[in-house]
Structure formats: structure tokens, C-alpha cells
Design a binder for these strands. Structure first.
Lengths: 190, 190
DNA sequence: TTTCATTCTGACAGTGACTATCTCCACCTG
DNA sequence: CAGGTGGAGATAGTCACTGTCAGAATGAAA
């Protein structure tokens, strides 16, 4: 399954993303062109677009997006999705390369266009999560709850950023989303 | 205050938006260029950008954005913001011109780039609403709740769209956001 | 009414993100 | 190894968007 092509593709994507972040950190997001990133990573501009689609996705592209429907269903617990979220956040925080989440997440809030791309990611995530929540609620309520969950997380993440990223992200999620959690606490009893 | 210039500006914006929607309906969003819209509305392309900033905002630009901080504070009731939202939605639905909300809202969900612009609008709205909710909760919880509120509304709106826009939007908001409302029901007692 | 300052408009040129298309070469398969 | 496939690079083109500048309409002061 990990064919030679697929392997090389993953490696190229990682290299492109690293080069892009290096350049962005050095000269600012807007001042760097795709052409320069491609040259730095030793690929063509076409490939950068093939892999990432947009310039913003060089930063906003999340491992989360690549999950299959089955994997997602395994992660999300319909009875307590916020616990699932917390678990995923903790894994994300410890799983980042040496520099931690700050380097990438910084751009979510510092660069408006990247913020937008992040909102798009979350929107797509909510669309995938909503059906999983429809077991306990109706379709409309499930859709609302999925959005509340996903974008509520974004709000907590922004608070983390506004505070300078000192404490852990999970702390902010746990504190900020505690009220939302009450919404599912009732379901468990039924 | 309604100076001659301001008056003409409002009229021009309305005309540009109408021409844009006409062209979009006729030939599709992507197939229409700003230049064509400008020509149809009898203004320069520069003016279109001056007024709306982006092509997407020709559709997504909401009266909501133009509210001052004071007006917003008057609308949003921190003790029951969902009631405030419902009120605003009902006013919006009845206040639309003859064709109803469908014509514009359709693009929110049919055209991906417009959807993005709408998310950006909502994001900005949440940032403004969060401080108003901070009286009852902490800053982080207020931020999360503001996002849950605003993007939850978006979810309900999408359900309305998916169902073909037959029933009223307020119905979907009321049904879909009922669980969220419980979060503030506790505050009233205290 | 004339004059001056301000502000908005249109025109123009430029940038760069993104798309479409083609050719070519490296990988998989029989 | 031969033929098929799909992904990579190169190129040209589109168009959203920006910056700048001169000129015209506005509003106020002389």
C-alpha cells in the first residue's frame, strides 16, 4: 500500500510545508510567492497546487482532513464528543514536531487569509461529524451541535493564542467547552 | 447626516448588488467578471471593489456587519441571546424584498467561495458578540458560546437550505438551537 | 459667486494566485 | 521487458485584487 509513489509524495508534501513555513517565518506570508516555495522545495509550482490546492492550505492543511469516514466514526463518541475532542487535542499537542503547535497555529490567527482557510477546514469537519451526532438528536439539532462543537473549539483555540500559547490548548478547550458538555450529560442518563 | 454623497453611495451599492445577482442568476457566479458587473451597474470596477472589497461580498455582505457596537449591544440580550437571534431572524425574513431570502442565501451554500465569505462574516460577528456574553461567563467560555451561537445558526440555516427553503428560517433556528438554549436557562435562575 | 480643501471616482498598470493543457518520464502490471 | 497509466514539469492564460494618480463633484469659507 505504501507504494513508492505514495511514499515520495508524502515526503514531498512534508518538505514543501517545511520550506513554506521557513519562508513565511522569515519574510511574512504575503511576501512569499508559490514559485519561491516550489523552488526552495525543489518541485514545480504545479505540484504545490496539486498537493495543497491553495497557498493558505500550506499552513491550514490538517491531518484531520485526511481521515476516512470509518476512522472518524471510531474517534468521535456520540455520547460525549467533547471528551473525544479533548483526546484528539492532547494527541495533537504531543504529536507535533519539536517546535510545538505554535509555529503553525500562529498563522491561523495572525494571517487573515489563513484564518479563513481554517474556518473552511472546520466547516468541512462539522459536515462530516453531524451525521455521527444524529443518533441522539434530530438532523437539524445534530447539525447545530456539530457546528457548536467544532467552532467552539476554534474559539477556545483562539483564546489560547491570545494568551500567548503558554498553557496547553487542552486546558482552554476543557474550560471553555465545559458548558457545552452539559448538553450531552443529559443524554447519558436516558 | 444622510448627505448627498452618502445617499448616492447607498443607492449605488444597492444597484450594483442587484445587477450582480441578476448576472449570477443568469450565467453563474464564476462566469461573471467584476468588470461586467461594473458595466451593467454603470460604475467602474474600482468602485465595486471600494464598496464591497471582494466578489463574494457582493452576495455575502450582510446588513448585520454595519451595525455599530451600541446597536449590537441593544439587540443582544446576554441572558437569552437565542431569543435575540430569533427576533433578528424573523425581522430579516420579513424585511427582504419581494423575492425573499432565498435568492441571496442560495449562494451561501451553492457557491463554495461565497460560503467561505459567509463564514468570515459570522466569524467577525462572533468576535463582536463574545464580549457581550462575558458578563455571565468567563472570557474563554464566552468566546466558545459566541461561536456556538453564531455558527450554530449557520448550521440551522443550511438545514433550511437543504430542505429547499419551504418552511421559515426561524423554524429551523428554533428547533435546531433548542438544546443550546438550555445553557442560558440556568443563568436566569441565578 | 468665487475659491479652496476634501473626498470620491474612473483609468491604468501591475502582481500573483490559480487553471487548463500538453508533453514526457517514472512507476506498476502482465 | 513491453505497453499502459498516472503523476510531474512547463507554459500560457485568466482574473481577482492592489496601488497610484489625475480629475470631477461636493461642501465650506471668503
Amino acid at each position: 500500500m505504501a507504494s513508492l509513489r505514495e511514499q515520495w509524495r508524502r515526503e514531498a508534501m512534508r518538505r514543501i510545508q517545511q520550506c513554506a513555513l521557513d519562508l513565511f517565518d522569515e519574510r511574512g506570508f504575503d511576501a512569499v510567492t508559490i514559485e519561491e516555495i516550489a523552488k526552495a522545495a525543489g518541485v514545480s509550482a504545479s505540484s504545490v497546487y496539486r498537493y495543497f490546492g491553495t497557498k493558505e492550505n500550506l499552513v491550514a492543511a490538517d491531518e484531520f482532513t485526511t481521515l476516512t469516514a470509518d476512522e472518524l466514526a471510531n474517534i468521535v463518541d456520540p455520547a460525549d464528543p467533547i471528551a473525544s475532542l479533548l483526546q484528539a487535542v492532547r494527541r495533537f499537542e504531543s504529536g507535533q514536531r519539536d517546535d510545538g503547535p505554535w509555529r503553525r497555529v500562529r498563522y491561523f490567527f495572525a494571517e487573515p487569509s489563513v484564518r479563513l482557510a481554517t474556518l473552511a477546514e472546520l466547516d468541512r469537519a462539522a459536515q462530516r461529524i453531524a451525521p455521527l451526532l444524529a443518533e441522539t438528536h434530530g438532523a437539524t439539532q445534530a447539525r447545530v451541535m456539530a457546528n457548536a462543537l467544532v467552532f467552539g473549539y476554534f474559539g477556545a483555540l483562539e483564546r489560547w493564542y491570545d494568551d500567548g500559547g503558554q498553557r496547553s490548548i487542552a486546558d482552554y478547550v476543557e474550560e471553555g467547552m465545559a458548558p457545552l458538555r452539559r448538553l450531552w450529560a443529559g443524554d447519558q442518563a436516558s
